[in-house]
């Protein structure tokens, strides 16, 4: 465990908590893509099936359980408790455009042709595109609440820190996981445009709005 990895995990956890607290305090999930949140719940579910088969560390187990719980609570807030406040009209990204290619690719390009391994691969590919419904929603409405942009910032920061973690691991342990690295780099690229807007607008006290 290196410093990039731990900071990456903290950043990921912070992003998830920021989103949950925002929904809870405002009693509203306006501007949040429920579809992205469903995809993240699916990502954690398919990736963390190894909770039942492999023990890595207490840290690993606890974090996986927290991520799973938070993901399901978020989905419940959007589609259950605060359903009336959700922006389903603007959350119009077609999930099959992501799920079909991701499923196909996970069968074609994986480490082992076993159920657990294919599901793990599916989760890695799916995570790399899971934020797209959220970014699509922002581009459609042309704006995002500042707190939503903080959520996206920490989610993007987590991805960037994981890349630093992989560079570190490659040099110190001679370890790299090609599937994770390629998908991780693709995923981080999706955040670049957003990072630019975050730095030039949100950090200067302006609301994120698109021209």
């Amino acid at each position: 465990m290196n410093v990039f990895r731990i900071l990456g995990d903290i950043s990921h956890l912070l992003a998830i908590i920021i989103l949950l607290v925002k929904i809870w305090k405002s009693k509203s999930c306006a501007g949040i893509s429920g579809k992205s949140q469903i995809l993240f719940a699916l990502v954690f579910t398919t990736r963390y099936l190894d909770l039942f088969t492999t023990f890595i560390s207490i840290y690993n187990t606890v974090m996986k359980v927290i991520f799973l719980l938070c993901a399901y609570i978020t989905v419940y807030m959007i589609y259950g408790k605060f359903r009336k406040t959700s922006d389903s009209e603007n959350d119009s990204f077609r999930l099959e455009f992501l799920l079909v290619p991701v499923t196909g690719l996970s069968f074609l390009e994986n480490h082992n042709f076993t159920a657990l391994e294919i599901l793990w691969t599916f989760s890695i590919y799916l995570e790399s595109v899971a934020i797209l419904p959220q970014l699509f929603m922002i581009s459609k409405t042309g704006e995002a609440e500042t707190i939503t942009t903080h959520y996206l910032f920490f989610l993007g920061l987590y991805r960037a820190l994981y890349i630093a973690n992989w560079i570190w691991r490659y040099h110190t342990e001679n370890f790299y996981d090609q599937i994770a690295v390629v998908s991780g780099v693709v995923q981080t690229i999706f955040y670049c445009d957003f990072f630019y807007l975050y730095v030039t607008k949100v950090l200067k006290g302006k609301k994120l709005s698109l021209p």
């Binding site: 990736r47 190894d50 996986k64 793990w120 973690n165 001679n174 370890f175 996981d177 994770a180």
Partner: peptide, 10 residues
């Protein structure tokens, strides 16, 4: 080379 180890990352 791409050595496959258990997935220890989150």
């Amino acid at each position: 080379h791409a050595l496959h180890v258990p997935h220890d990352e989150l």
